[in-house]
Structure formats: structure tokens, C-alpha cells
Computed example of a mutant assay.
Amino acid sequence: MTALPLKSLPAGVIRQTLRTRRDGPVLTVELNTPEQGNAVTDALLDDLLAVLQDQDPAVRVLVLAGNGDDFCLGGDRGEFTRHLAHDPTGGGIRTSGNKARRVCDALTANPAVTIARVQGKAIGAGLALALACDLRVGSVDATFRLPELALGLPTAWGGLLPRLISEVGAARVRELVLTGRAFSAEEAHYLSILQRVVPTHELDAAVADWVRPIVRRPPAALRVTKTLLHSLSAASRMADVSALDAELLAAVLAESQHARGGS
């Protein structure tokens, strides 16, 4: 692989919550708070936005990974509680939810091909981040779950629900959301949430199997094809109301907080 000039992300850059590595046209972005299960916080969203907004146009593949045992354990509920304590009307939740949508949209509409490398657990917002990527490979022991309803939350984060329905189908998504049950990598593959399932020690090789042909494609044709695929997928989600995700999340949490305070 011929190395390309780096823009602003030399190999091994560590932000507050991320570690980035650049190898020619391939940029790896690793969620890097394993002691917290790589939980999604405002700081993580800020770091992801900064990386995606500053992305070198020469990057043709972006790999999203997670350091440690788990890809991502979902949103930080403690941070939600702190947001509500500071603003009971849900202003902080709204701000955070809007960041989440911008991050997921930036992954989906990224000019580079985005690959999610999933190991361990991918829960809630973690599943949303993976689903925003073009290609998704998971370890055979990976597990997935949408626990929002059991936690008193709507499934409204980063445009997850319309993406999930588009990829999986409404009937199956309805069952996963309403029961909140965990499901395996094998089932995720059957549902098209994952395109490949491999032993954990083969995850990097599986990513490399995808990267090798992609980086050989003519850059202009790759960009245009990625744009076409994104546009056609978006057209199939004409009833996408995920722009309201942040408002819905804030409203439900604020109402729950008010009910608890008044009981």
C-alpha cells in the first residue's frame, strides 16, 4: 500500500476519547475509553465530529473500531442524568442528541467507505454507530441489544430506527425494539446488521480483505458510487423522522424526571 501525505492525523494520535491511525488511504478511528466500555459521551461525540470534519479527502476507507473487550456499551446514562439536573427541560439532552445525529450522518454520507469492526457488545448507541457504516464485520462472540424501552427511553438516537428498518425490515425491528432482547452475531448476520462474522482473531484480516480491493478503485468512481448508494438508500426512507430524535429523547427524559420528582 503506497503511503499518501498525511493532513492532520499522524499515526497514533490520541484525543480525549479516541485513538486515530493513518496508513496511506486508510484511517482507523478507535473508540478509546475501554474502562467505560467505550460508552458514548458528549466528549466522544465532539471528538468524532472533529475527526470526521477534518478528514483528508485522500482517505478512501475509514475503519471504526473499539479498544478493549467491547465495541461500545451505548450511551452514558450518568451523563443524561447530569444533563437533566442542570436543565430539567432537556436542553442538554437535545444538544447531545443533535451531535449524535451529525456524527451518524457524517459516517453514512462520508466520501470514504466506512467499515465497522465490532467485537464484544454493541448496545444501543453503539449499534447505531456501527449501523451508520457501509460495511460491518463482527466477531463470532459479538452480541447486540436495543435496551432503550426497558430504560424508559425512545429508540431515538442518531437516526438509528430508520436505518435499522431500511437494513433489516420493519417486522423484525419491531420485535427487537419491543423486547429489547440480546441477539448474537449469527443472528445479526442473518438480519444484515453484519455482512461478515469471523473469529475474533480474524477481525483485522477480514477488514483488510475489504480494504485491499476498495483502495485500488479509481477515487472518483468510488466517491460517486458511494454517493449513489447513499442517495438510493436515503430515498427508501422517505418517511424518516429521525430529525426529531433529539426532541423526542429530551421530551421523554424530561417528563420521566418530572414524574419521579413529583411522586
Rank of each mutant, 00 (worst) to 15 (best):
M1C: 11
T2H: 12
A3Q: 13
L6D: 15
K7D: 14
P10W: 01
G12E: 02
V13C: 11
R15Y: 11
R15K: 11
Q16D: 13
Q16E: 14
T20P: 01
T20K: 03
R22D: 06
L27A: 06
L31S: 04
N32E: 13
Q36V: 08
N38M: 02
A39W: 03
A39G: 05
A39R: 08
D47C: 05
D47H: 07
L48Q: 00
L48T: 04
A50K: 07
A50S: 11
A50G: 08
V51D: 04
L52G: 06
P57L: 14
P57W: 15
A58E: 11
A58I: 13
R60Y: 07
V61S: 02
L62V: 11
A65T: 02
N67H: 12
G68V: 08
D69S: 12
D69T: 11
D70A: 05
G75V: 01
E79I: 04
F80N: 06
D87M: 02
P88N: 01
G91M: 06
G91I: 06
G91P: 00
G92D: 06
R94N: 03
V103P: 06
C104G: 07
D105C: 07
T108H: 15
I115L: 07
A116Y: 05
R117G: 06
Q119H: 08
Q119N: 10
K121Q: 15
A122P: 05
I123A: 04
G126L: 07
A128V: 00
A128S: 09
A130N: 05
A130K: 05
L131V: 03
D134H: 06
V137N: 04
S139W: 00
V140E: 13
F144K: 04
L149T: 13
L151K: 11
G158W: 03
L160E: 03
R163A: 10
R163H: 08
I165E: 10
I165C: 08
V168R: 03
G169K: 01
V173F: 01
V177W: 02
L178F: 08
R181I: 10
E187G: 09
H189I: 10
L191G: 07
L194Q: 00
V197A: 05
V197K: 00
T200G: 14
E202W: 02
A205E: 07
V207Q: 00
V207A: 01
V207D: 02
D209V: 00
R212T: 13
I214K: 01
I214L: 09
A220S: 15
L222P: 05
K226W: 11
K226V: 10
L229H: 11
L229W: 10
H230A: 13
L232A: 15
L232K: 15
L232N: 12
S233N: 15
S236C: 12
R237F: 06
A239D: 12
A239Q: 12
A243C: 09
A246V: 07
L249G: 04
A250Q: 01
A251Y: 08
V252T: 11
Q257H: 14
H258L: 12
A259P: 00
R260N: 08
G262N: 12
G262S: 14
S263M: 03
